[in-house]
Computed example of a mutant assay.
Amino acid sequence: MAPCDQSTETDGPYPKNGQDIHPKKRVRLLALLLYFGFAPLTWTRRNNTASLYWKSHRKQALILWALLGLITFLLLISVAVLSMLMVYFRNEVDTQRVELWILSLTRKSLLVWGIFWLYGIWRCLRGSTAPVPIIGWLFKCTMFQKTGMIFLNLFFITCFLATSLTIRGERLLTQEASRARTFLLYDDLGFVPRPLFSLAMYRMASTSVRRWGPGSALLRPLTRESLDDAVLKGTFVFVGSHGTAAGLLLDGKYYQPEDVPRPDNNTALRYVYLASCDSGAQRNAWEHALAPATVRTYDRLTPTLEHLWWLWTEGPALLRNLPEPARPTQED
């Protein structure tokens, strides 16, 4: 089948005058669910019995999802390219400007898409079969509908899995430090919701609970107090912070190796991961301040994707194989 089919007047997707009809409430609800991403509605074929209203809004919703998929795909490619530029071409490219350009273009694209999406929902609720302007031009292209179906199903499955893992992660993670061995600290920038970090830290939390039991994995916002607490009580510490060669940025101020409380009483501290850019500029100082722990630092810019990859691949393996701290012996 060709990507774009030529429809005749009799089999067109909507009436010429775009008249409003009165579909049943059930059909209207199903069409509305399709706009909101309920992919199971695409798993059955009912072309022969479906109403004109359903066919019109099914096509329109799938085209909108195809366009959203295209925006998402371009965003992921842009983020991947930006990550490579940060790592390999730091001095040749102004990565901060590129990042701002990507964010600006993405916001504008999503805003335009959102306007068309809301317009489609409005016409769906009205019972109209007339397509959204411009979107209607793509009705004859089956390629967009097939692409939309693929992305819609990917979106639905991803949301289902992400929601399940986030809920599971929240149940595994604690905010009480009394029994915690794995301290996972994050910088939410003042607006990023905690559930996103629960999802990002899921594998670390799961590995910690399997090894040390419930309550061993702690997730907290990164502050000076929470970092000091982690150094003094933890066995494994992940510090998801921003920073420069001068130190970690906490609450707008630098946290430097000399600010670390001496973990002399915490012989259990074994590994500290510093996600900050250029933290390796003071590698020796960090290692001395956090001894006897092994300290992971970077002497370059570090993209978020790199840390996420580590948290889901290398991190859990490292946590499983982390040597148990030596237990203090009691002298008679």
Score class of each variant (00 low, 15 high):
E176L: 09
F197N: 04
L110D: 03
T207W: 04
G114L: 01
D188P: 11
R194W: 13
W122Y: 11
I157W: 11
P131G: 04
C159L: 11
S164V: 04
L165P: 06
P193K: 02
L173K: 10
S178Y: 14
S109E: 05
L125S: 05
R107D: 06
K146R: 11
Q145K: 05
I121V: 10
I134L: 13
C141K: 02
F183L: 09
A177C: 13
G148P: 04
G114I: 00
T106P: 07
S208C: 05
L111R: 04
A180R: 07
I115T: 03
T142Y: 05
M149Q: 14
C141F: 07
I167T: 13
F183R: 08
I134T: 08
I115M: 09
S208L: 02
A200N: 13
E99L: 00
A205G: 09
F191W: 15
R171V: 07
T106S: 09
L118P: 01
G127I: 01
E170Y: 10
K146N: 06
P195R: 06
T147H: 08
W117M: 03
L110P: 00
A177Q: 13
G169C: 09
G114Q: 05
V112M: 09
L154V: 07
P131D: 04
S104I: 00
I115W: 02
E176T: 10
W113G: 03
Y202M: 03
L196S: 15
R171W: 15
V112E: 00
L103T: 03
M149C: 10
L152A: 01
L199F: 15
I135S: 03
V112P: 03
A162Q: 14
L154I: 09
P195S: 08
F183P: 08
L110V: 02
R107C: 11
I134S: 11
T142E: 13
L196H: 15
R179F: 14
M143W: 14
D188Q: 12
T106Y: 11
